[in-house]
Design a protein around this nucleic acid. Structure first.
Lengths: 206, 206
DNA sequence: ACGTTACTGGTACAGATGTATCATCAAAAG
DNA sequence: CTTTTGATGATACATCTGTACCAGTAACGT
């Protein structure tokens, strides 16, 4: 057998090229040739590792979701060291906002895929429908912990609150993406809402 | 001069055809030929009334925003008759959720346009960046009125709350669109948040 | 009546796109 | 060393897309 190449690695390289060029010029504009050029390989090679464009796109989506999931959980873990649950909640929500280029690209492409999924059942069955649920579960759990520590205002439903916060974060993210809103104002909005969920520092007289 | 045709009306017909076929098959798949077929006219005619595809897409976006704006304000006005401000706020937010086909199409296409706008400065300058601001102003005003009527919990910032609610509504809308969430659960989430903003019916002892 | 002009149809063209085909290279196995 | 087979390259092809071109038709002013 001939030159053995790590297929998985190659596929990842090409997938990253897809994400880069799609993030730069928009997912709807990229063809196989663009991906090949961005990855510095021949068109044939892209065909070889992904037989069809559809499969390439699927792989790109997987990669995107995986990378972003790692990013978020890294940030949450980093925030989970010293302070309280609120800092972790903030870290989770802020990490999802398209404030820097990486997150911006993620939002952009994720939304692109979501739009495609509306008319493409095969895409709609992909993991990016699962990931938000995972995030919702994680955030719900964080809120529950905060609740048990009596850090939340009474009457808060952890699951509903988690769903609402994530939806708000996603909506604000879109606003940032299209230039309607600055990351700072989005942060302000989110914090204001967290202030209404978490108990303020005021000491309640016994 | 020959057969006089109402240009504006014809353009609207074609624009509606665009919205229909794009809503059905996805904005990224529609070409001028599809629009022509959907409108029951020749390709040449689409070219005649809109010289270029770009102009057709712009017109479609305007039409979409206009129609949806009318829809929302109609519903809000309908709710504004008898009850209180909360009903109007609910009407505004619920009307924006993709619960029925019309609203679903709007969300779908609006998001499609938003994605395109990320890489297309000409699109980014279009009105759909303005409309959300209008909605935010309107909702802010509704919340202020509720605030003056002492219907809101203390410590609520009307503008921040309006921005957050609209973002949440948009995020929930996307969730519905991709099949991640049902309209009912989205309504539940929104109502839970409204319950935390509006004062509950409990009578405060004097 | 008639020409001008708004409107409409048919079709061609250049470019891009996804995919398929044919051929080559190189390394591992015998 | 030869053969086998995974990996790569160049290119052809059919299709679709936006746009341009060339014409024909019908109504209005004079």
């Amino acid at each position: 057998m001939p030159k053995r190449v790590d297929h998985a690695e190659r596929r990842t390289e090409i997938g990253e090229a897809l994400i880069r060029v799609a993030g730069r010029r928009g997912l709807h504009t990229v063809g196989m040739r663009d991906v090949a050029a961005e990855a510095g390989v021949s068109l044939r090679l892209v065909q070889y590792y992904f037989q069809t464009k559809e499969k390439l796109l699927f792989f790109g989506l997987e990669l995107l979701a995986e990378r972003f999931g790692e990013r978020v959980s890294t940030r949450v873990r980093a925030a989970g060291d010293s302070p309280g649950p609120r800092e972790m909640v903030e870290a989770l929500l802020m990490a999802a906002l398209p404030a820097d280029d990486e997150s911006r690209t993620f939002h952009h492409l994720y939304t692109s895929y979501a739009v495609l999924a509306v008319n493409d059942p095969a895409l709609a069955a992909q993991p990016f429908i699962k990931n938000p649920d995972t995030a919702e579960d994680a955030l719900t759990e964080l809120l529950r912990q905060a609740q048990e520590a009596a850090l939340l205002e009474p009457g808060v439903d952890a699951r509903l609150e988690a769903a609402g916060l994530l939806a708000m974060s996603a909506g604000l993210g879109t606003g940032i993406l299209v230039g309607q809103r600055s990351p700072e104002s989005a942060t302000t909005v989110l914090n204001h809402h967290l202030n209404r969920i978490f108990r303020t520092g005021e000491v309640v007289l016994p």
